[in-house]
């Protein structure tokens, strides 16, 4: 499948943190093309198993999260509009006039209210509050109550826009792009020797605190974990600590990642002439790797990130070649390293 088509397919289904079943199904079916078996655990993590057939092979977990940020209904107002409570880190600036889907008895379309001109105080740069951002689903309270309950999910309306130079904008490239890179890695691995039992994992509830990865790492207890997430892409208003699009995946060096294996990864990237960038992170990477590293007796982690502009908006923008290079890098890494490389 063409990378854009794969990304679009992965961006389409909804999967608010804690309610990932829609994306879960899509991931299960995509994984099943490459895996001997696909299962789903208690919290909803999807695990695809690719055995290498060798006895005593080491276990490698490759994971990306499939959940996305959004909201849940906190209250139905007397005028039929909804107030919402955020799930994950939402920038309130993206909300006015944003289009949403309210997952009530049926999928309902809604618009987040924006202030009309006569109520805008031009001299005041006011703080926004979720209390003022009413979601208009076009119904009276009476009608709304028949269709919507407190706690119903609200997700941003989907939309995939191809831009120039292999760039594309979408609602939740964070971290469906990671899932796409996992699938591409599995595709490359079909043709490569690999001496590891691979667990291809799509995790839940990353956006609310790395929750799915924590329990999954405990369950699988792998010998090595490779996390794929997104990192901030460079834009005119954000240069520090950001990475340009199209210059390859970003490899993290720091206390969260296994130094020796990370160096190995870098060597392999250089030898194979795959573009990459380096991120030096002095502590919490804010990714699943942070939770996985300290599961059970400790799990060596590698963290690869795909540069993404406008993270946590509905126009998250990435370069599809970075996704492809990430998949390729993972597959070549697993092809080149030996079981004994995984040690301290």
């Amino acid at each position: 499948m063409d990378t854009n088509a794969l990304l679009e397919k992965l961006n389409e289904p909804y999967g608010l943190s804690g309610y990932e079943e829609e994306i879960q199904k899509v991931v299960e079916s995509l994984f099943s093309e490459y895996c001997a078996g696909v299962s789903t655990d208690k919290l909803g993590n999807v695990i695809g198993f690719i055995p290498c057939g060798k006895e005593g092979a080491k276990k490698v977990m490759i994971e990306a999260h499939m959940d996305e940020i959004g909201m849940v209904v906190a209250k139905i107002n007397d005028d039929g509009t909804l107030l919402a409570s955020p799930i994950g880190g939402i920038d309130l600036k993206i909300l006015p006039a944003a289009e949403v889907i309210v997952h009530g008895k049926e999928k309902l379309y809604g618009v987040v209210g924006a202030k009309p001109p006569h109520l805008i105080d031009k001299n005041k740069s006011e703080a926004r509050s979720m209390d003022d951002l009413a979601i208009d689903i076009g119904f009276s309270k009476q009608e709304a109550e028949k269709l919507v309950n407190v706690g119903d999910r609200i997700t941003f309306k989907s939309g995939y826009t191809k831009l120039l130079s292999n760039n594309a904008a979408s609602r939740c490239h964070d971290d469906r792009a990671g899932i796409a890179s996992l699938i591409l890695a599995a595709e490359y691995l079909k043709r490569l020797k690999c001496d590891f039992d691979i667990y291809l994992c799509a995790t839940v509830q990353e956006e609310v605190g790395l929750r799915g990865a924590k329990t999954l790492a405990y369950k699988l207890n792998p010998d090595l974990a490779i996390s794929v997430d997104v990192c901030h892409g460079t834009t005119p208003d954000a240069s520090d600590g950001t990475f340009p699009l199209g210059k390859g995946p970003v490899i993290t060096i720091g206390p969260n990642t296994h130094r020796k294996l990370t160096n190995k990864l870098i060597d392999i990237a250089k030898a194979e002439k795959i573009d990459f960038q380096i991120d030096v992170d002095g502590g919490n990477t804010g990714t699943n790797a942070w939770a996985i590293q300290v599961a059970r007796e400790g799990i060596p982690c590698i963290l690869i990130s795909i540069p993404l502009r406008y993270m946590h908006t509905t126009v998250e923008t990435l370069n599809t070649q970075d996704v492809e290079k990430t998949g390729k890098l993972i597959s070549l890494f697993l092809n080149k390293i030996e079981g004994e490389d995984i040690c301290f």
Binding site: L43, V72, R211, L216, Y218, K219
Partner: peptide
Amino acid sequence: VLEGGRTDSGAIHLTRSG
């Protein structure tokens, strides 16, 4: 739907493999 608070289930549900 509560914002700004947590309780015991928050810890229990992340115990072991979930």
